[in-house]
Design a protein around this nucleic acid. Sequence first.
DNA 1: CGCCAAGGTTGACGCTGTCTACCGATACGG
DNA 2: CCGTATCGGTAGACAGCGTCAACCTTGGCG
Lengths: 212, 212
Amino acid sequence: MDIENEAGSVENSTSTLRDACLEKALEAIREKGVEGLSLREVARRLNVSHQAPYKHFPSKDHLLAEVIRHCLRDFAQHLRASRRPEGGTPVPAADALRSLGQSYLGYAATHPLEYRLMFMTSWPEVSRELGLASDARAAFEILGETLKAGKQYPSAKDRDRDAMFIWSAIHGTASILQSEAMAYLTIEPEEIEASVSHGFSIVETLISPRQP
Amino acid sequence: MDIENEAGSVENSTSTLRDACLEKALEAIREKGVEGLSLREVARRLNVSHQAPYKHFPSKDHLLAEVIRHCLRDFAQHLRASRRPEGGTPVPAADALRSLGQSYLGYAATHPLEYRLMFMTSWPEVSRELGLASDARAAFEILGETLKAGKQYPSAKDRDRDAMFIWSAIHGTASILQSEAMAYLTIEPEEIEASVSHGFSIVETLISPRQP
DNA sequence: CGCCAAGGTTGACGCTGTCTACCGATACGG
DNA sequence: CCGTATCGGTAGACAGCGTCAACCTTGGCG
């Protein structure tokens, strides 16, 4: 009833409260962690009754799953943008992979909350029936496309093996960079930078091994 | 008062209930997830009042942190064991890294709950003051030692860069293998096996690049 | 003996997710 | 134009949670 009318959002006139819930949920998670998310808190932030959100989400887990889906799509869009940065001219194939990798790490660095939600939080049970996995796969396939454009593979399986390794390495890097261990340890930033760059070089020689 | 006297555990006579709490907490997490962990549930499983655990842990988070510490130490011990498997004769340096890697992935595969707890769950706030990070670092340093034994590095920093990359790649692999996405996707097991092996090969050529 | 601390108990408080019931609009078929 | 059903909101109740406070029992020690 008392939903704040944020700037813009004209086109999105269907079920304002639903979107507002998603927004405030993310905000609440940002402040108090996933564990601390509470439907009542979301309702309170929107000045509605504690039951209002239930008209749009069957349960707290459904809300959380939708928040994660939102992040997945935003993330995928962010990755896609790395292939045509600003100007509109596509990145040359040789640089596409590094560009994608930096885009990936950049997202993880600037959206740690969202990254954690997507890839380091155990999804709620209902995510399965809500088909969250297909949103995750969409993001993964951007890497596959980039590889395909940059190198001739004898078979799709060979490409997938490379993709799997690269995805693992970069996800591992991203998740270690923002893990608790990293926050508690003391490592000079320049050394981290060097490590990451080292990793990129390794992956690049993996992709184009025959060029002198 | 009514703590079950499990098999053995004679040497561990100091504060039986404390250890029992840790044990039952892990059990409860296994059944109902980290989110579902409740101190009262732990107490109930031990036939003890809902406040008894508070005599040993200042808060639920302290209990959880101790559970994680327990996992970290067990994990480190598991990794160390990979260097001297069963018989007592150490693994030759050339195979040490792959052996360590398989040990790592093996642990993640056979103890998914513990792995998630250590590396994919956001540690409770109190972990910082409880010094959990040093337990995590102990596990990481096993990799550093293995690298040092297998290759001459010009400097410790160079070694750390390799270690960082390898750790990232293998953590990424482990965490993707047991991620939600993997559970929801459909990939043939043999293909997964091939991808993992592919990754190992890449890392091995990284370590010994000059051998034909 | 007196006393104190350790480790257990019960009870209460405010928070949570969710079930149920109610209530006002608004659309729509007769 | 009048039911009436549905949609999106409200209010109340319930059990379970973490945690604070108070109390009780027991064993060791000056």
